[in-house]
Amino acid sequence: MGALNAFQILNGLTFAGLLFIVASGFTLIFGLLRIVNLAHGALYLFGGYVGYTVASLTGNFVAGILGAMVVIAIIGFVLDQGLLRFVRGYELRQVLLTLGVAFILNDMALVIWGGDTFTVPVPEFLRGAVNLGGIFYPKYRLFVLALGIAVFILLWLLLNRTRLGALIRAGVDDAETVAAMGINIRLIFMITFMLGAALAGLGGTVGGAFLTLYPSADSEILVFSLAVVIIGGRGSLVGAAIGALMVGMLNSVGQVMFPELAYFVIFGPMALILAFRPLGLFGRAA
């Protein structure tokens, strides 16, 4: 057991950046559609594999990211319009359906890419380390943190500065009333689902470059994302950011100080928060 050093704090922060990217999509879908999308982890992993393949074939990291986002958004579209639309309003059926889809996606990934571990190739300028006042820290992990912050800013602008964003927020508050005002809320649901899925694809590609891709990586990220969203509160972007920071830091603390209790260090505080704020830090009753 030892104290946290700057390196480990940076590990926590950069992991939080990735967690935010993945969990922001999760919380958007959870907040608006009221669906606990248990396929979100599988979308992350599948997106990672797609990103790996595209990035390897083209030799272009950005192409890998875009390819993964597009493919996962399309899978999100099929999931929402092809399957979930038939069980709208039935929470348990939705959850079970997304769980089933998670199994199918994971098996498909196993068939296509096998059980080997892959690492998404990153461009030359993101390799190596930078010297941060005496600590040599991987450039790529700093890039992930910066990307997480960029995604936060872009999503914040989308939600708070555009009409679509205002409609999404209104839908999180009261989807039925939005529909009664002449807005096709199903279309807003679909766009949000595709956006949330695309964020999982982005997370998979970016995460696949430093956490690597392997079968069962999906459930690990899903459990972390659930913790982020539960701590932050359903549908709250700021909540997801704070939740990601907490989970990222607690994960570092856990790994360094209490390696045998790593999960407890995350889920213990989560349970404590829920005891006092059952809707999460920024959650609101429907």
Binding site: A166, R169, D173, D174, E176, V178, A180, G182, I183
Partner: peptide
């Protein structure tokens, strides 16, 4: 005009109007 108003808690007054 629904029973209980059903306003959108996270929207400003202006946003209630401009979203529609």
């Amino acid at each position: 005009v629904p029973q209980g108003r059903r306003l959108f808690q996270s929207l400003t007054v202006t946003e209630h109007l401009t979203t529609l």
